[in-house]
Design a protein around this nucleic acid. Structure first.
Lengths: 219, 219
DNA sequence: ATAAATTTTTAGATTTGTCTAAAATAATTT
DNA sequence: AAATTATTTTAGACAAATCTAAAAATTTAT
């Protein structure tokens, strides 16, 4: 089944609203999509007829299995593109969302597959959100600040909670970016500084404050 | 000025048809876009009102300066994405066009700039067509088969005129791809084989027949 | 140069997605 | 439980992009 850009946006928004409330209602979806309730009702009928929505008029609605699957595909594309924009093109965190909103609608399966492989099948996007896999499974990964990440374990940098240019300069200096491999070799109790190995570079020491802003998950 | 996806497709097609004939006519554009003459006329009015088209009814039409500039921007995006899909994602030549047709409509200036830099500001796309630069200038580059490329000059691989899997295997073996740096060190008259240096790898020797299919331009 | 053929444009309809305003239904208050 | 308020849906309109069929303009042929 193929979906228009607009249909995809509705599906994605319904999916997100479902996470909080069991049944989604017309007004909240209209708010989320920055549109009017009447427009939402029209689209609900269409999505129901396309068999992605459970919907009884006046009673709220939610995606069925098929709809959820579709939503996860769209979210997967969105987050892969965000990862690409940040890790490969070096775009700032806060600018990638809007661009990924456009790129996510390019739906070639071949493209998504190749992009995923090219990026190293990332599991978390630059905002720290999990990227659904090919089957639509959300990886259950907990990320933690590098300062509390266990020693001697291989970690992958998933996000950075500080987007100042000062931070950027330091990340750049150490060669740390989204997707970098990282391992804590030693921690110094005196000031909490850490000796770390970043990808294949020689080990180096970083401050606790710096490490706090680097989020990492188990490889 | 912003253009819809449809408007962009019209602009791009008119640009391409202009290359052959001085004035473009309604029917040929309809043929090119796989649509009907009446639809074309409707769009011509719109493009005229948006000041990208010189158009007098019944008399044919062509893009004005502003329209040509817009066309070059779209073509630039298209060809950069094609380059990306082939050189980074390793997609086959013949599959990238359709995907680039979608990607080209994502028009963030920031994105295009970063993508261009990331790809190394390529001048020729994988089909051998020139990529307009930021200013809309088409690079005037002649590509030649590697077998006739002058020795000791730095070349960039721009396209490959053979997409068989046998060819792919050899390209892969030698680490040659779109965008690779290459230099001919020596040629052997006995069988026309060439000693070449590919990027930073140690020099190696390749056959004349192989070299014929590798197109290169002056760096 | 007039008739025939072709091309282009107009007129009016259709589809998709949106909107406003009014009606229908549900939820809340008294 | 009736009245008030809030939410949702319907009815009807609109803009964008397309189409078919008919009319207008141009080109070609006789």
């Amino acid at each position: 089944m193929k979906f228009s850009e607009s249909e995809e946006n509705y599906i994605k928004s319904i999916y997100k609203l479902q996470e909080n409330t069991k049944k989604v209602n017309t007004n909240s979806l209209a708010g989320h999509l920055n549109t009017k309730a009447a427009s939402v009702t029209d689209m609900l009928k269409k999505l129901k007829s396309k068999k992605v929505l459970e919907y009884k008029r006046y009673y709220g609605f939610r995606l069925n299995d098929s709809g959820n699957k579709e939503a996860l595909k769209i979210i997967r594309r969105h987050r892969l593109w965000e990862f690409f924009l940040v890790s490969k093109l070096g775009m700032p965190w806060d600018k990638v969302h809007a661009i990924a909103e456009e790129l996510e609608h390019v739906s070639s399966l071949e493209l998504v597959k190749k992009l995923d492989e090219y990026l190293g099948k990332p599991k978390i996007d630059p905002h720290g959100d999990p990227i659904p896999d090919e089957k639509g499974e959300m990886p259950e990964l907990k990320q933690v600040g590098l300062n509390v990440f266990p020693s001697k374990k291989n970690g992958i940098v998933s996000s950075i909670s500080n987007q100042t240019s000062e931070m950027m300069k330091m990340l750049d200096h150490y060669g740390i970016g989204i997707g970098s491999q990282i391992k804590v070799l030693k921690t110094f109790d005196f000031d909490g500084s850490l000796q770390v190995k970043i990808s294949k570079q020689p080990a180096c020491v970083i401050s606790s404050g710096f490490a706090q802003n680097i989020f990492v998950y188990d490889d």
